[in-house]
């Protein structure tokens, strides 16, 4: 009896997993190598088509002649202010202060908010002389360690940072009907929230094609003021609010989807990309880039 049972146990063979293991060993490295961990996207910029090889280029834009039905929306970017121009008039400038977030590639130290002093940048060599020191290694951060650039809108006297109310859940800036940031909120107020990519409407917008308009702001009624908090006002958000306002004011303009970004020579490319993002989320899809002559 005992003998029989033992034999049947011995006959129960284990599954041979060797070939499956071989497959795994091959498949996992292949998939790992092809996996994309950082996703790359593109931002399209079209230059006007001119005769090839000629001296005329897109970037050498002359001041467009005044046409009644053209908006010629322009954002001028310099190292401490952004100005919107439309219909050859200028809106009040947004003065801003710049803060950088540094993440060291060597030690991993993170400095979340370092003030940036534009006057310490040598315009000739493009060397910034006030780079912060990494407390771990004792060495200064390199410009490559700069992870993010934040711009905060300043009061006109350039002494204090402007404040605005943001929704905690979606980071949406609250503005009044005219696009100005709110100074105070109370329950029952009907306000406009400037959409961000966290906004509930953005999911529907994500499926939209290039030509369709996205929702730039939504009307909400404040129920609980605790859902909102006062933060330093981002100059990009203020810019978006102003652009949305100007664009809405001229629904018939031929070029109401166009935006010209004109920057000074020493402006960092990162800021221009951020401005292009602001433009695109404000439905200004055709972005051209110009140079600000000094």
């Amino acid at each position: 009896m005992a003998n029989k049972i033992r034999r049947s146990k011995a006959e129960m063979k284990e599954l041979d997993l060797t070939s499956f293991m071989n497959l795994m060993v091959v498949l996992i490295p292949v998939l790992l190598a092809s996996a994309e961990f950082a996703k790359i996207a593109t931002v399209d910029v079209s230059l006007p088509q001119g005769p090839r090889g000629s001296q005329t280029t897109s970037t050498q834009t002359q001041k467009p002649e005044e046409e009644p039905n053209k908006l010629v929306l322009t954002v001028l970017l310099s190292d401490s202010a952004m100005t919107i121009g439309a219909k050859s008039n200028f809106l009040p400038s947004i003065f801003y202060k710049e803060y950088h977030k540094y993440v060291s590639k060597e030690t991993g130290t993170v400095l979340p908010m370092e003030e940036y002093f534009p006057e310490k940048l040598d315009p000739k060599t493009m060397k910034y002389s006030a780079l912060p020191i990494d407390p771990k290694s004792g060495k200064a951060f390199t410009p490559q360690d700069r992870e993010e650039i934040y711009l905060y809108a300043m009061e006109d006297d350039f002494k204090a940072v402007k404040k605005g109310y943001y929704s905690i859940q979606f980071s949406e800036l609250l503005t009044d009907e005219n696009g100005a940031p709110l100074k105070s909120i109370k329950p029952g107020d009907v306000v406009y929230a400037l959409t961000t990519r966290m906004s509930p409407v953005s999911e529907a917008d994500a499926d939209k094609t290039e030509d369709e308009e996205v929702v730039t702001r939504r009307k909400i009624t404040i129920q609980n003021p605790a859902d909102f908090e006062q933060r330093d006002l981002s100059a990009y958000d203020l810019m978006k609010s102003m652009l949305v306002q100007v664009r809405d004011r001229y629904p018939d303009a031929e070029d109401r989807n166009d935006l010209i970004i004109a920057a000074e020579d020493q402006m960092v490319y990162d800021k221009i990309v951020q401005l292009m993002d602001v433009g695109r989320t404000a439905n200004l899809k055709n972005i051209s880039i110009a140079k600000l002559r000094m």
Binding site: V45, L47, Q60, Q266, M267, Y269
Partner: peptide, 29 residues
Amino acid sequence: KNINFDILYKIMRLCGRNGYVNMKFAVMM
């Protein structure tokens, strides 16, 4: 991202002059 606008402008200008008018800037999502 740390390149200044001056260089970007010159590059765009060169591309435009040579007929590369549809520029796509690569960015991180």
